[in-house]
Simulated assay, not measured.
Amino acid sequence: MNVAIVTDSTAYLPAEVVARHGIRVVPLHVVLDGTERDEGVDVDPGQVAAALRAHRRVSTSRPTPSAFLEAYEAAAEAGADEVVSVHISADMSGTVDSAVLAARHAPVPVEVVDSRSMGMAMGYAVLAAAEAAERGEGARAVAGIARSRARATKVWFCVDTLEHLHRGGRIGKASALLGSALAIKPLLTLEDGHIELAEKVRTSARAVARMEDLAVGAAEAAGGDACVELAVHHIDAPARATELAGRLHERLPGAPEPMLVELGPVVGAHVGPGTLAVVVAPRPGRGD
């Protein structure tokens, strides 16, 4: 069977990786001062960071079902017999709902996967799906591989302020920290599609150092540095992200060099400038 892979723009996969595997990407939308723009097409992270710092109105919205249907139809026209469509956590966005609606009208069967994640935590699941499809696996097996890798992947992140997560309604139980946000720097994680508090620390430097330690520990728990892939995300903080990626590479030399990927406008709008994140993804067959 010929299985096509579709995802959304919040996977933040590098363009060359998308092209190499023939992955179709459906963009989410960013609304700046009332004007809707497509992520990765006509708005970039710098514009969103500047808008947030200037306290301008920034919001996000999911793709329409018709956008997904166009992607599924294009995949079928290109020869796909089935489609696996992997997306941002349904607790963060209505994107999965749009994909499910579109799948009902697609010309070929579509397996929609709620990754329960976002960013490269989802991106590595998309890559695992693409590689499985290239090996000739059917849609059900490919979808299972994507779910398994997403479930095994760990992510931690620290934000400069909880303001943006709170305003967007995506802060989860970490909302309890709002009253003490000046006294502590929360280290956050994703648990089954939700943002949760991992730890409370006193400074930004300590939060980043602790995030590094947790990433190294996760790699060791997955079987060692040769058994994982890593990514470092940031929004408008390239120097700090580069330093963090370098330290991780020194401590985990057996792993591929961490991918350094700036968060896009959609996720950036909710976490805010200065955010750093680390993703540890066990290689397929590890940490399931």
Rank of each mutant, 00 (worst) to 15 (best):
H166F: 12
H166M: 06
H166N: 14
R167P: 02
R167S: 08
R167E: 04
G169V: 14
R170A: 05
R170C: 14
I171V: 09
I171K: 11
G172S: 05
G172I: 05
G172W: 06
A174E: 10
A174H: 09
A174R: 15
A174L: 13
S175F: 10
S175V: 11
S175Y: 13
A176H: 06
A176I: 06
A176S: 06
A176V: 06
L177M: 10
L177R: 01
L178I: 12
L178V: 13
L178D: 13
L178E: 05
G179D: 08
S180Q: 15
A181E: 15
A181S: 12
A181W: 12
L182F: 10
A183R: 12
I184W: 15
I184C: 05
I184G: 04
K185N: 10
K185D: 02
P186V: 02
P186W: 00
L187Q: 01
L187D: 00
L187N: 01
L187E: 00
L187A: 01
L188D: 08
L188W: 09
L188P: 06
T189F: 04
L190D: 05
L190K: 03
L190M: 09
L190R: 01
L190Y: 04
E191F: 09
E191H: 12
E191W: 11
E191I: 14
E191L: 10
E191A: 13
E191M: 04
D192V: 05
G193I: 15
G193N: 10
H194Q: 09
H194T: 02
H194V: 09
H194P: 01
H194D: 03
H194F: 12
I195N: 02
I195Q: 02
E196M: 06
E196N: 10
L197F: 09
L197T: 13
L197A: 13
L197E: 12
L197G: 06
A198V: 01
A198L: 12
E199C: 03
E199D: 15
E199R: 12
E199F: 03
V201T: 11
V201F: 01
V201G: 00
R202Y: 11
R202Q: 14
R202W: 15
S204M: 03
S204R: 12
S204G: 05
A205V: 15
A205G: 11
R206G: 08
R206V: 12
A207Q: 00
A207K: 00
A207S: 07
A207G: 02
A207H: 00
V208G: 00
V208I: 07
V208Q: 02
A209D: 09
A209C: 05
R210C: 05
R210P: 01
R210V: 13
M211V: 08
E212Y: 01
